[in-house]
């Protein structure tokens, strides 16, 4: 009797222990990931004196947020940088989707000679880092007189092999019978792509949108090469101009600017979080 009575409590105890262990590991990961953000937030509300003290404190003795954020907003065209970021990310994303979705459909569902070879090329494309074609692209854009334009910042990223790969994997699990039914109902292949297959791929598309927007919002390398006009600068490049010209070593103002420029991404991710996770797991498991 006592054995039977004991075992449930023991098993609950064990369950709680393992839960605690799992959560300890997760909390450690969260701390590691969030520390830079927290530090950025904390620094952005500290006065310069406190930033350079040797002791670590998570709350300023003197609240200096108004001055830091005021200076950031006043001295740097942060909204302009953010608008540039939106234009560039939006432009890149729209073209990427317009190109990658039909490509991925063709690779996943159409039968044509050379399809597998093309897919291998796509995979190889994944292995080429952006730095490799930077030089020829720069020379080409310079010859065309397109440096210092939004177009120059966007053009290398219009074709995303990663998107083609991701959507191809997603479309492969789309039932062939539905495509057959659509053909029998008289749909063209383009209509099948946009009206039948794409609506079912929203999780994958949402996931890719987050990947793409984060990557290009935060990109410094390519804008640094093709942009010298501060009015066209996307957020990271703008931050760099701001750091050089205005803020110097005013880290309070710098981190305040960084906070303002990071916020849209964080908010967008929080809104799209569920979709994003769905997209990753659905394409990953199959």
């Amino acid at each position: 009797m006592s054995g039977i009575a004991l075992s449930p409590t023991r098993s609950t105890l064990r369950r709680y222990l393992s839960l605690a262990l799992v959560h300890a590991v997760l909390v450690a990961g969260v701390v590691f990931m969030l520390a830079p953000f927290v530090w950025m937030l904390v620094t952005s509300i500290k006065p310069p004196v406190e930033i350079f003290t040797a002791e670590i404190s998570l709350w300023p003795k003197q609240f200096y947020a108004l001055q830091n954020y005021g200076m950031a907003l006043e001295k740097a065209p942060l909204l302009r940088f953010a608008l540039n970021g939106v234009i560039i990310c939006g432009g890149i994303l729209i073209v990427q989707l317009l190109v990658a979705i039909p490509c991925a459909y063709a690779l996943a569902k159409l039968d044509f000679p050379g399809r597998d070879l093309l897919f291998v090329l796509v995979l190889l494309g994944l292995c080429v880092p952006v730095q490799v074609p930077a030089m020829p692209l720069y020379i080409g854009l310079a010859h065309l007189g397109l440096l210092n334009t939004y177009f120059a910042m966007m053009v290398p990223f219009f074709i995303s092999v990663f998107a083609i790969f991701l959507f191809r994997q997603f479309f492969r699990s789309f039932p062939d019978d539905i495509i057959h039914a659509a053909r029998l109902d008289g749909m063209s292949e383009f209509e099948i792509v946009w009206r039948i297959v794409t609506p079912s791929a929203w999780p994958a598309i949402a996931a890719f949108c987050v990947f793409s927007a984060v990557a290009h919002w935060n990109d410094l390398y390519w804008p640094l090469i093709v942009i010298s006009d501060a009015k066209l600068a996307p957020p990271p490049l703008g931050m760099m101009f701001f750091a050089d010209a205005e803020a110097g070593s005013n880290y309070g103002a710098l981190t305040a600017a960084a906070t303002i420029l990071t916020a849209p991404l964080v908010i967008a991710f929080l809104i799209a979080r569920r979709r994003f996770i769905d997209g990753i797991t659905m394409t990953g498991v199959k």
Binding site: D177, I178, H180, A181, A182, I196, P199, S200
Partner: peptide, 9 residues
Amino acid sequence: FQSYALYPH
């Protein structure tokens, strides 16, 4: 079709 192949959305 066996799977009905209805347009899910």
